[in-house]
Design a protein around this nucleic acid. Structure first.
Lengths: 263, 263
DNA sequence: TTTGAAAATTGATCTCGGTCAAAGATCGAC
DNA sequence: GTCGATCTTTGACCGAGATCAATTTTCAAA
């Protein structure tokens, strides 16, 4: 398998769509009537657009899904039958080139909506990074629901607008930032997200592998690792147990991420 | 001005916001009642969501804008007061890093909607590539209009979904494709767009400079130029008068763009 | 038709990050 | 605890594309 032909980046084996080894979809919860009213993360999601006394309409179209780490939720190219809310855990979405080069287009955490980007078929594949629970919605039913609840449409448009803005940030990162700047930006983005979910400022639990990070930032595993080492010896961060990132000099990290500090 | 500090890519001078040399906004047409019913590109735009007999509502909130090449429509960071429809010409949107590195986040042509990506302020700057006419809408009025015409909201959400999908393609391009693959993808994308607007298959008029192309693809001007030269000597394309691209071997170009042909 | 500024091309050289290879570290399963 | 698979780190080397530096071409204005 001569994969070394003039080509950059990490490579993964051609996706076999091996349903035996990787049974999809994940475990489907036997609660067709997901109790949306009891949902602890509702305010983080698009479901916040539905008034409390109308939540039964939402519960009618929602099904709970559980995914073990490494399991796939859907693959690029399949018909987009469903959309999802992440209620706990972390997923990644990615696209592959024929020779196995991979670009991770995003990491989704609690509160994120999966399925905004659309072309009739899924535009990327989705796989659980950690143990994950999701709410699955039929897209058709969701569309119907939008007619009855305009606020839902507004909320989705808002989410799409903000995702688009983040996508543009990512273009700057991928097209113009150095490896050091990319890692700094990535860590701060994760930290900001963790903050919103009520996590502390000083440290950060990283769930994804170095290879995942590389495939998200357009780098190789080795460069990611080397850059971490470099940031450690610059006393900008340290790494604790369980690949926990400890921020020693957040100031500097911000400067690096924004492209102010080039060294 | 030591700009050579370890940093990649084209660089442009720090934006001076020089309103004298670059008077914004562009010439505003003295027709507050833009005749939407007579608009020849209406079916290409979000305005197609409004029924013909309701078009006066749209005309009430639309103003025609004209922009000469090189003139700016808005700058990143300004409050997002307006959204725009491109009715003719081409624009580019871009983001800058403090040292002048630039990432072009998109080229907008006839029928495109400007202002979906949003964070309260414009997430990128917009500048005319060629002579451009636009319809300007107040965002507030547009939002109001959405309540009366749900189809408008649906259309915007659709546009956002498709833009998000394109943004993900661009991430793959920026993060994982080689210079050759980037150029091939770019030319085919432009060609496809030109096609939709009823242009021929065999050739393509390029309006942007090599520097623009580089800043869109995460390359330098020189690499763009060299890659064109390479594709010419490979008899995959040739370049006619006025930097017109003539496709000699579209097959190969597609293979290169999709990452199948690595040489 | 000439002219001058901007854009494009080409060449020589350099470097950041990729590639290849080989230890170490981690961690869940037994 | 230990075994084995996976992940991470580190080292040596390489190459695609960046940088620096001239030309050459283009094109609009005079």
């Amino acid at each position: 398998m001569s994969l070394k032909d003039n080509i950059r980046g990490n490579r993964i084996a051609p996706q076999p769509f091996n349903k035996a080894a990787d049974p999809r979809p994940g475990t489907v919860g036997h609660r067709p009537d997901a109790p949306c009213s009891a949902c602890s993360v509702r305010q983080l999601t698009i479901c916040a657009a539905i008034a409390p006394d109308e939540l039964s309409h939402l519960a009618d179209v929602a099904t709970e899904i559980k995914l073990a780490p490494g399991k796939s939720l859907f693959y690029e190219g399949e018909a987009t039958k469903y959309a999802f809310n992440v209620t706990s855990g972390t997923l990644k979405t990615y696209k592959l080139l024929p020779d196995g080069r991979r670009q991770i287009t995003g990491f989704q955490v609690t509160g994120d909506f999966l399925g905004l980007a659309d072309r009739g078929t899924y535009v990327h594949s989705a796989e659980a990074v950690s143990a994950t629970t999701l709410c699955r919605f039929s897209r058709d039913r969701l569309r119907e629901l939008m007619d009855g609840f305009p606020a839902l449409g507004h909320r989705l448009l808002e989410k799409a607008s903000s995702e688009l803005a983040m996508a543009h940030d990512q273009m700057v990162l991928l097209g113009r930032k150095t490896a050091r700047e990319k890692i700094a930006s990535f860590l701060l983005m994760l930290s900001q997200r963790a903050n919103q979910s009520g996590h502390g400022e000083g440290s950060l639990a990283i769930e994804m592998t170095r290879t995942d990070i590389g495939d998200y930032l357009g780098l190789t595993t080795e460069t990611v690792s080397r850059t971490f080492t470099q940031l450690k010896s610059d006393k900008i961060l340290s790494i604790g147990k369980g690949s926990e990132i400890i921020f020693l000099d957040r100031e500097s990290l911000v400067k690096i991420a924004d492209g102010f500090a080039n060294k």
